[in-house]
């Protein structure tokens, strides 16, 4: 299963977990799986149609995953994804 590194700001909705494992062969499937396992987290990451909000990004190997046609974005079992939100502190 692929993993998603969860930033501190969203760990409130994962019971404190910093690394989640997700199932799915495409980005759409992975996001759907994430939403089923962590519905509270999903409301902060995605809109009602399952698309990521503009203030969060998913990266893989240092490159952003496309936002459009997420069902065409293939995810491998050994992919390590990184979730990056906007943060505000200083």
């Amino acid at each position: 299963m692929a993993t998603i590194k969860i930033p501190q700001v969203f760990q409130l909705y994962t019971g404190g977990s910093a690394l989640l494992t997700v199932e799915g062969a495409t980005l759409t499937a992975v996001l759907r799986d994430l939403a089923q396992r962590y519905p509270e987290l999903a409301t902060h990451l995605m809109n009602r149609t399952g698309k990521l909000h503009q203030y969060v990004h998913l990266f893989r190997k240092g490159e952003e995953l496309p936002r459009v046609e997420a069902d065409q974005v293939l995810i491998s079992q050994d992919d390590d994804l990184v979730l990056v939100p906007g943060i505000a502190g200083g």
Binding site: H44, H57, P85, A88
Partner: peptide
């Protein structure tokens, strides 16, 4: 990078 801000209160401050 961030075309839209998060909704107020969604991202807590320090």
């Amino acid at each position: 990078l961030f075309p839209e801000p998060p909704p107020p209160g969604a991202i807590p401050s320090c």
